[in-house]
Design a protein around this nucleic acid. Structure first.
Lengths: 146, 146
DNA sequence: CAGGATCCGTGGTGATACTG
DNA sequence: CAGTATCACCACGGATCCTG
């Protein structure tokens, strides 16, 4: 399979490895059940998962503690996000049978392990945020009527 | 190569830094225009952006070349994704006034710079994919009636 | 070839009310 | 406190047709 190797300037090393793996996925026809990007990144990319993940990075939290940490998430969406994290083995749920029930959510080793690459991306986002905003303003100015 | 520093207390070093920055965003009330996660990661998290980014990682591609690389993207969605990348300053668009017009898309330095953190996340996704799938199967088995 | 325009279905999301 | 259930919306994305 023609792995399109950039002969000129390799951009970055990560580019070539990404390209190589991309070819692998192509050969599977991008089967959604076998393509890690579609399966994993789509989940991380939804509106709340990343925020909840980071909220739990510091310490285990209870349901309403998370709600206070992520102010504008609804109970419904928080429940759903936590179920997804639980299902993917990224978080665990511990029920304490107190007078009013209290439920604690805690990152599993798997959930902890994603914090590292996630942090890289957040770093990038913070460092490049101003640059991106400038690009957006410039683009909207020239193409404002589009 | 993910540094599994699973120490007892502080989880991972990235966890503490994430938590710290999270507090900063909280103080801004998670203003969507100022929170890098909401602004940048939401974009990267959509259905096609990441795939197109990786497709362009190897070398510049023309419109229909990208379509062949990402087989199931529609023209509409590819156009929209490319406009977003252009607007964010991640890709540039070059029109060659040939007989049938040909348009080449190329990653900008900013777009190239995201490949590195993105690659980390893809690495993680690939390495943990089997583990996640096992967790999902186990979860669905025990909670199948939910 | 590289789009733009339009129609339209679906799923993700929020608001509200209810429960153990 | 920690959810569940139901309804309603609308933006995302696909399909189709049209253009320079």
């Amino acid at each position: 399979m023609a792995v399109q190797v950039t002969r000129k300037e390799p951009l970055v090393t990560s580019a070539t490895t990404l390209t190589a793996r991309f070819s692998d996925w192509q050969e599977t026809g991008f089967d959604a059940t076998r393509c890690p990007i579609r399966n994993v990144l789509d989940r991380l990319g939804d509106r709340w998962t990343t925020l909840v993940l980071i909220a739990l990075a510091g310490r285990p939290l209870r349901f309403n503690e998370i709600r206070r940490t992520v102010p504008d998430i609804s109970k419904r969406m928080l429940t759903q996000t936590l179920r997804h994290l639980e299902r993917d083995g990224m978080a665990t749920r511990h029920v304490f049978p107190t007078k009013p029930p209290s439920v604690e959510y805690r990152l599993s080793p798997l959930g902890i392990s994603v914090l590292d690459p996630l942090s890289s991306l957040v770093d990038w986002a913070e460092n490049r945020f101003a640059e991106i905003n400038r690009a957006r303003i410039a683009f909207d100015a020239t193409a404002g009527t589009r």
